[in-house]
């Protein structure tokens, strides 16, 4: 446990340094370049690309969370129960759509830039969150549901006071899945001119500069690992608070 914590801190420090001052790492990446090509991507500042990347993912995930959890709540209410099988089927089917295809199909409708990327990430992020919210909301033990009704809570009080808090760790796991997928998928957004870290990777692919590909990939990978870990820690904390430890 100790060692893994040290590694995490180390990764965080390296990542932060690289994002702010990429030139420091120039010697590390230099052996990977050929014909004296630059070792570090400088066309756009890595910092601004990272921030833009994170912002796109954050906005898409936040929207996806609101909509997906909202839908999951609707279909688990008595009046929406009719749509439960349909929504399950759609979620199941939707997940088979490759993210690249979602992105590619969004371009013609929304043009180039950040728009289609946002839409693709939003749509693709919906499914894991919806799926998990549904699992969380329907997985509450019958005796707890019964007790909530029996103590005289109104539907609204049951939702806010019992169902959502108990489903929270599971919903959080869904958001985590969605964020990690989105972080990676957002790089593809740069093929349609969204400002993400994919720009670095694609520049590397186009000019045959492995150093660019590597640094772009490493930043996104490290971000994903750290955010993933952060979510897992949050989930553990939440699960303990929910008495599921």
């Amino acid at each position: 446990m100790k060692i893994s914590t040290i590694i995490r801190v180390l990764v965080l420090v390296l990542l932060a340094t690289f994002i702010v001052m990429p030139q420091v790492f120039s010697p590390v990446f230099a052996p990977l370049t050929r014909f004296n090509a630059p070792a570090i991507y400088t066309q756009t500042s890595i910092l601004s690309l990272t921030l833009s990347h994170l912002a796109i993912v954050a906005v898409a995930t936040a929207l996806a969370t609101v909509i997906a959890v909202g839908f999951a709540i609707l279909v688990t209410r008595p009046f929406g129960e009719e749509f439960l099988p349909l929504s399950r089927a759609v979620a199941n089917i939707g997940q088979t759509f490759p993210p690249v295809a979602v992105l590619a199909l969004a371009v013609p409708m929304l043009g180039f830039g950040t728009g289609p990327t946002l839409v693709a990430l939003f749509l693709y992020g919906l499914l894991p969150i919806f799926e998990n919210a549904l699992t969380g909301l329907t997985g509450i033990s019958p005796s707890v549901r019964e007790a909530a009704r029996g103590t005289g809570m109104t539907g609204w009080q049951r939702l806010i006071g019992v169902e959502l808090p108990l489903a929270f760790p599971v919903i959080l796991a869904g958001i985590r899945l969605s964020v990690v997928i989105s972080l990676s998928t957002a790089t593809i957004g740069s093929t349609v001119a969204a400002r993400t870290l994919g720009e670095v990777i694609i520049a590397g692919l186009l000019s045959g500069n492995t150093a660019f590909v590597l640094q772009g990939g490493l930043i996104v990978g490290a971000l994903a690992v750290l955010i993933y870990d952060g979510f897992v820690a949050l989930e553990k904390l939440a699960a303990r608070r929910m008495g599921r430890a």
Binding site: L32, S184, V213, G216, G217
Partner: peptide, 14 residues
């Protein structure tokens, strides 16, 4: 799994 797919594809070229 967390390495973005286009980066992994690219990195394997060398």
């Amino acid at each position: 799994q967390t390495v973005p797919s286009i980066a992994l594809f690219g990195l394997l070229i060398a």
